[in-house]
């Protein structure tokens, strides 16, 4: 593993990618594809959509890299592209979502053999979390993911999704209330 201090800074890679050096963009992709995939998966809750969105994010980033403003963080920019693609997908699909079946998830051939989550209890928890969040309407899930997993502020979410702050708050409240109901077994009991 390379020493992180040896890492070429993002800004340099971006500059090189802007003048057409494909290796530089490839390196950026290596750095961020898992983070982008994680975000896409959190939003869509299925591998196929997450994979498509992750790929589209980098394709769009590559096409627009010359317009990238280096005052911003590269991941913030990718993040924005990815969220917009997710929102577009939700709009296109209406109220329909696809989720992978446990056996088909991510394609068995790509699954990491050394996955430590083989533990049955952990797998069950993950499945329950997956189901609970899949039950949220897309708009509530998007706000919840951006706040809780991506740790964006209300203002940032409001700007990113183009909705008023009050809407961010009410959607987040609804999402938390619903998740609280669905995950009651995993929450601290009243006695404690």
């Amino acid at each position: 593993m390379t020493d992180p201090t040896d890492r070429v800074p993002d800004s340099e890679l971006i500059h090189r990618a802007q003048v057409g050096e494909t290796e530089a963009f490839d390196e950026l992709m290596k750095r961020y594809n898992q983070a982008v995939y994680r975000l896409a998966y959190s939003m869509t809750r299925n591998h196929a959509d997450a994979e498509d969105i992750c790929q589209d994010t980098f394709i769009r980033a590559y096409r627009a890299i010359k317009r990238f403003d280096d005052r911003f963080r590269f991941y913030t920019w990718l993040h924005r592209i990815c969220v917009n693609l997710c929102i577009n997908l939700f709009r296109r699909r209406g109220r329909v979502r696809l989720t992978s079946l446990p056996g088909t998830e991510a394609g068995a051939e790509w699954a990491d053999i050394a996955d430590p989550r083989e533990d049955a209890g952990a797998a069950e928890l993950r499945r329950d979390l997956d189901r609970a969040i899949a039950r949220l309407p897309d708009d509530q899930r998007a706000v919840f993911v951006l706040r809780v997993k991506e740790e964006l502020s209300y203002g940032e979410i409001s700007k990113l999704l183009g909705i008023p702050m009050g809407t961010v708050m009410s959607r987040l409240n609804r999402a938390r209330e619903k998740l609280r109901e669905l995950l009651r077994d995993y929450l601290p009991s009243r006695a404690s």
């Binding site: 995939y37 994680r38 998966y41 959190s42 591998h47 997450a50 998830e105 991510a106 790509w110 699954a111 990491d112 996955d115 989550r117 952990a122 928890l125 993950r126 979390l129 997956d130 969040i133 919840f144 809780v148 997993k149 998740l179």
Partner: peptide
């Protein structure tokens, strides 16, 4: 969700 909800590890 912060700690336990992860996408499939690839």
């Amino acid at each position: 969700f912060r700690e336990k909800d992860e996408p499939p590890r690839l």
